[in-house]
Every structure is written in C-alpha cells, then in structure tokens.
Write a protein that binds this DNA or RNA. Sequence first.
RNA 1: GCCGAGGUAGCUCAGUUGGCAGAGCACAGCCCUGAAAAGGCUGGUGUCGACAGUUCGAUUCUGUCCCUCGGCA
Length: 344
Amino acid sequence: MSHRFGNVSVNMRSDLWLHHRPLVVLLGPTAVGKSRIATHVAKHFDTDVLAADSRQVYRGMDIGTDKPTAEERRRVPHRLIDLVDPGETFNAGWYRRVALVEIERLYSEGRLPFIVGGTGLYIRTLVRGLCPAPQADPHVRAGLKKLKDERGREGLYAELMRVDPETAARLHPNDESKVTRAIEVYRLSGRPLSAVQAEHGFHETPFSALLIGLERRKDILYRRIEERIDWQLTHGMVEETRSLLGQGYGRELGSMKGLGYRQVGAYLAKECDYDEMVRRFKRDTRRFAKRQMTWFRSEAEVKWLSIEDNEPYERTAERVIARIEQFVSVIGQRKQLATMLHVS
RNA sequence: GCCGAGGUAGCUCAGUUGGCAGAGCACAGCCCUGAAAAGGCUGGUGUCGACAGUUCGAUUCUGUCCCUCGGCA
C-alpha cells in the first residue's frame, strides 16, 4: 500500500506525517452512506476508521446507532467506538482527548488518520480545537438544576446575565443546556465562557485537514433514512432498547435520548402505539439530517461530493480516494520542495 | 337520477353574528465551543371549489354549476 501516496516515498512518510500532520475527514448526514464508503477508503490507504460519532461510543447500542458490522470491522479496524457504557458521561472534550491519542498513534505508524462521522462538533474539536474551559462537573450541574427547579429558566438565565452578560446575549433563555454550561464554566474557572471563547476563537489548526463531505438529493436521503429505520426495526431495534432499559439504563440518560432509543422507549412505555413510534423515529431522523446539513454547510472548507442515486458505493469510494491522493500529493510536493530548499 | 354530508395551507380540520383568514401536524430556514443523534430560535398570499346575485364590502348570505364521500335506486 505504500506506493499509493502519490509521489511520496515510503521513507518520507513518517517524517512527512510528523511535519504536516495531514488529517482526512469524511463527513455527511446520517444515512448518506459514509460507513460503507469509509471501509473501502480505509482499506485502500491501509489505515483505520476513526469514528466521529457521539452515539457509537456507547457499548450495547449497536443496531440503533448503525454501527459497522463484524465483517466490516474485520476488514478494517474501527476505533473510537464502544468506549463507554450508556450510563457514563461522554462529551466533546472526552472525544477530542481519545481521538488525539489515536491520531498520534497512526502518525507514529506512518499512517494517515482518517476520521469518519456525522457529529459536527466532534469533528470541529479536532480540526479547529476546543477552548480550554473546564470539563463538565456533575456537582455544579446538580446545583444549577436545583436553581432551575426553584426559579425556572428565567432564574437560570438571570444568573447567566449576572456572571456572563455577553454569552447571555448570544443565547436564548430557553436554551437551558447551553445556559447551564456557560454558568458552569464561570463557577469552575471564575472566568466567563465568552472570555475563554474569545481567546480561543476556534482558531487552532493542529492539522493539515482535508474535509470531504458526502451529500445526496434530499428526497433520496430521506428515502434512505426511512429504509434504514425499517431495517433496524426488523433487526432487533426494539429488543435492543428493551434490553438496555432492562439493564437499568433509563430514558433520562443522554445516551437513551438518541434517535430511535427515545422513540422506541416511548413506545415500550405505552406512550404511543407502534405506528406512531415509527412515524416519530423517521420524522426526527429527517430533522436531524437537516440540522447536520445546516451545520456542515457552515464549515467553509468542506469539499463536497454529490452522490448520484444509483451510484455504486465503490465508485464513490474511488472519487473519495482520488481526492485524498491529490491532497497527500500536494503535501508531499510541498515537503519535497522544503527539503530541496533546505539542502541547497 | 334522488336524498344527505362536505369542498378553507402539503395533510387533518377550526373559523369569520358579512370587515386585512387560523390551529395541529408535515415541511422549510437558522443557531450551536465538554448533553451535539442533544439543546434552542424563526417561518403562513392560501384563486377559503367555480360562476353569478345581494351588499360600501362576500370565504361567510342567496342562486346555479362542478367535484368528493355516504345512503337509496
């Protein structure tokens, strides 16, 4: 596989990686077809798939998160999957930390880090960094929950206006989770989140990143979403949810609020009938895909590849590979030029 | 053919004692720095079935017609 990196020699690779830190990201909305294409691409570059997926990190949530199959994992190692139990907390900060370890490992092996996923924030923490605010703290959150219960959203928002008027101005009073987080940062660090963010500004560029976005016509994507959900429901989605609930993972957990588990959970609690559950599952997933596209469109540097409806996934994979080879080649030429200048 | 009921937003329907047409759902647009498959914000010109009449003014009242769904033939 070493000869695949354009005109970059094997000997240079490790050195090249360390200097230029190339990072390839394959992103796109749910059900666009990332996983299958990614396995193909990763195989080609003899590298691993590093997932950027906030749901596949949970052990035991397999069908509902559309995890890669055993066969796919045998062909290509998939990392950043199955990291925690559904009852444990996981967030963007944790993701970044563990992802960086995997990325460094690949560099040390002279391989190309290849991120694949649809969690926009997680991808951003790699490509542009994360501001050095303190981690989430359960005690502080419990205190803020109490404040909210006693004085409502207005009370919570009033507290934010007191400690961080700038962030308050940016957030809607109803956006409880973000209001809570902003107050939490202030309580833990003594500094308003707005100040920490202003310093950071998402300006870190730790990697030479290539972002490739996969997109499809909206009606086709929506059809694929529905087909996938039908498949999940006939392949154990309900049983998987029942089993998780049976293990004590309640519906209030963040992990259980994910798509599918939330709707099936409501069905199992007899809050709606089966057909209504399916309807909500599909609807909410469509809405999610739409939000993902809104997020990704604002990532200016994404190179979009539009997938035709009847395009075989091998063909798409080839197009992705071509993009990556071009990217690696450009970096290689830059490196060679730098070496020449240095020598002469 | 006759007798009912109905035709208002993509869908289901409400409503206007005649005065700029409104809900739910669906959908669309957007925001996002440790919950991100989460959380939050915003969005309604639609020949009120068609034509005519009454009226200052008709989606609303009257008439005729068309269409849909029941029932009877």
